[in-house]
Nucleic acid binder design. Structure first.
Lengths: 341, 341
DNA sequence: AATTGGTTCTGAACCGTTACGGTCCTTTCA
DNA sequence: TGAAAGGACCGTAACGGTTCAGAACCAATT
């Protein structure tokens, strides 16, 4: 018996030695982890479901921060972290079914993702991040709507009324272009939907007709998308005074496009982001900083906390408005600008 | 029977429907992945063993690139990727034993790491990265020694003879300070040992007494370490004309320290790195670029390649010497410098 | 009517471990 | 000296699924 391995106290040292000896002689490689998991009903790992191509997550600084926090929590608990491949192309839910884990963390997937549905069907605890509160499972996130509202108020206070928006993808289908108000409302990414609605609310209150504000969507999340998105907005309305991006990565891209056009930031145009990533900080970006690492850690803690009392729980982390040097008052007001389209 | 789930062809559609119906009615959550793994002897996941605190890996751009490549390979194969917690503090090998995986990838751990030993004892295929060729398992890496030799030749060609070195940690114990030649030879990190030996060989050939070259070691791998390491070297010998770092991260830190001292790079001092990370590229760093993403992908491919013919295999990836603008000829030669220590 | 062939369905064996309860032996105390 | 108590050791039954052999069934052929 392989009690020798796990319960050295249950048997005499002599027998233990003898057992271990013959085990080695017979080439026994030690207790099989899978069989143990089956018996003990503990896999010793938590699964992480990411919507993007698995590798894609490693390109996004915010996702990396989240991963780091989650890994930290897992490490503390001595648990493994299983990255579950969830290719959004083919709807291959098998990977979710095949994952031998004690629980799932779901990070920023569209709310109609079949993988998410598959996870929710599994009889294991789950924590969703940056998702709407499902009411049935734990949740951790931030107040995207409120944070963006606050950022918008800042811009409105500076005098911006004529703006453009570049956002990340709103649904599973690719739509690189302008977004109708309908699509904004129906967005399947909770985070994007709420950031846009925060913007819409603030600017509507300031008397801006939101349906006339150019909002451009980009499927891929990288600086190139930010640049091309900014270009598309500026082509539509060269007179905008502020370019609001729903992520820092997009904002950094937008800034390169502004520079390419000879627009000085913030003198000629204001650019803002969201996330508070390192590169944005170095660029002095005006943005909303969210505690990505803490978010990951909180998700892990929530999942691994064995005292599961009155579940489900919902955690909202605080954000911070960072006023950098990429935002300023519009130059004399858009209507006074002497150069036309 | 849950053949209904996996072998729809083995039974009539009517029975299948009936089985699935009652299953749903009874609240059956679908086949248990662990039990399936036990029976089929397939876990559907590969384990990744990192030496650092798990979260630490997410701070190192090279490690992230490796992770990305590995994740890519896993995604292609539809396999999960299990990050195994291997806290170097406590020698808790249990996490390795507990991991239900079909194979292991071991990334840059000291060759005397007990976790590595535990992995090698497990009866599953293994690929080691940035490790010496163990002869018993697959290996993927680069020619650290040769690449560093080439970089050294470049510096020697420029005229550098009086140099200093900042390297990453050489063993499991913390030793933030100067390194004896003995410790260099006995280094347990294959990568560091070979890079240093490449340097030693080249400079010895150029007539430099390697035992007199100040080599400083840093346990933590970040820019702050690079800066403090550079400071320590420069304090010891302010007349060095080149500061060779065994990673880009350290080199970037060293450059901040040089700037702090009013030394212009490369006019007053040459600084070089190793890895070819993005931030280094932007800084114009002279370095050796290694294909980190490809390394991860190759490791995954090697592990997941089922046609395991004449194992073990050993893969060496190509590196490229990048001459940036942080290296130049020493200013008039070290012996002519008029300012003393 | 009996044999053959093919398909659908059922049952049992196994994967390797841990938990549990029972047996046996030794020690202690009345 | 006998009974009770305790410790060491061992055997067995799950855990939940997959697989495979063979039973049962139906139809077609001899």
């Amino acid at each position: 018996m392989s009690n020798a391995y796990n319960r050295p106290d249950q048997l005499s040292p002599e027998l233990r030695r003898r057992v271990l000896d013959t085990a080695r002689r017979l080439g026994y490689p030690g207790p099989d982890p899978v069989a143990r998991s089956l018996r003990t009903r503990k896999a010793g790992a938590v699964g992480l479901l990411l919507t993007e191509n698995l590798s894609y997550a490693f390109r996004d600084p915010a996702a990396i921060g989240f991963l780091e926090g989650l890994a930290l929590a897992c490490e503390d608990a001595g648990t493994g972290l299983l990255l579950v491949p969830a290719n959004p192309e083919r709807e291959d839910v098998a990977s979710v079914h095949r994952a031998g884990v004690d629980g799932f963390v779901v990070y920023s997937v569209p709310d109609d993702d079949p993988h998410l549905a598959a996870v929710l069907e599994r009889p294991v605890p789950t924590v969703v991040c940056d998702q709407p509160d499902l009411g049935t499972v734990d949740r951790v996130g931030i107040d995207d709507r409120g944070a963006m509202y606050e950022l918008a108020k800042h811009l409105i206070g500076l005098g911006h009324r004529r703006i453009g928006v570049v956002c990340m993808r709103l649904a599973r289908d690719r739509n690189d272009g302008f977004v109708t108000p309908d699509r904004q409302h129906a967005a399947h990414f909770h985070v994007q939907r709420n950031r846009l609605s925060g913007l819409a609310e603030a600017f509507s209150e300031a008397g801006v007709d939101w349906s006339q504000v150019p909002v451009v969507e980009r499927f891929d999340h990288n600086m190139a998308s930010g640049a091309s998105g900014a270009a598309q907005v500026l082509d539509r309305d060269p007179q905008i005074t502020a370019l609001i991006c729903t992520s820092d990565v997009l904002a950094l891209g937008a800034m390169t496009e502004a520079a390419r056009r000879g627009l000085r930031v913030p003198h000629d145009i204001t650019v803002t982001g969201f996330d508070g990533i390192r590169a944005g900080e170095e660029a002095g970006l005006t943005t909303v900083r969210q505690p990505v690492l803490e978010k990951g850690r909180a998700a892990g803690k929530l999942l691994l906390d064995t005292n599961e009392r009155t579940r489900p729980r919902s955690v909202n982390l605080a954000t911070e408005l960072i006023i950098g040097n990429t935002s300023a008052a519009p130059r004399g007001g858009a209507e006074e600008r002497w150069f036309g389209p």
